[in-house]
Amino acid sequence: MKGEAWLFTGTALFFGATTLLYGWLSREPAGTAALCVSFVMSSLVAAFLWRQYGRGGERPEDRDEAEVRDAGGQRLYFPARSYFPVLAAAGSALIGLGVVQGLWLCLIGFGVLLPGILGFAFQNLGHPE
Rank of each mutant, 00 (worst) to 15 (best):
V40W: 09
I108A: 15
V37R: 03
A34P: 01
V45S: 02
A93P: 00
Q101C: 07
P79C: 01
L44S: 12
L125D: 11
M41S: 15
D70C: 02
S82H: 03
G31P: 05
T32H: 07
L97K: 01
Y77D: 01
F39G: 06
V68K: 10
A5S: 15
L44A: 15
G10T: 11
L49F: 12
G102V: 04
F110G: 06
I108W: 08
N124H: 04
A121T: 09
T9A: 15
F120E: 06
E65Q: 11
A46C: 13
G116N: 06
W104I: 10
P29N: 02
C36T: 14
A46T: 12
L87D: 06
P79L: 01
S26M: 07
D64H: 10
V86D: 07
A33E: 04
S42F: 12
G91Y: 13
A121F: 09
L35M: 08
E67A: 11
L105A: 10
F122A: 03
D70V: 02
R59E: 02
G102S: 02
L118K: 09
G31V: 07
P60W: 10
Y83C: 01
L107S: 02
E28H: 13
L105D: 10
G116V: 00
R69H: 05
T19Y: 04
G23W: 03
G96W: 09
P79R: 07
M1R: 10
A12N: 02
G73Y: 05
A47S: 15
L103R: 13
R27H: 14
S38P: 00
E28M: 08
S42D: 08
E58Y: 05
L105R: 12
V99N: 01
Q74E: 12
G23E: 01
S43K: 04
G23F: 04
T18F: 14
L94Q: 14
R81S: 11
F14D: 01
W6F: 07
G116I: 03
E65G: 04
L103C: 02
Q123D: 02
Y83E: 06
E4M: 11
S92D: 01
V100F: 04
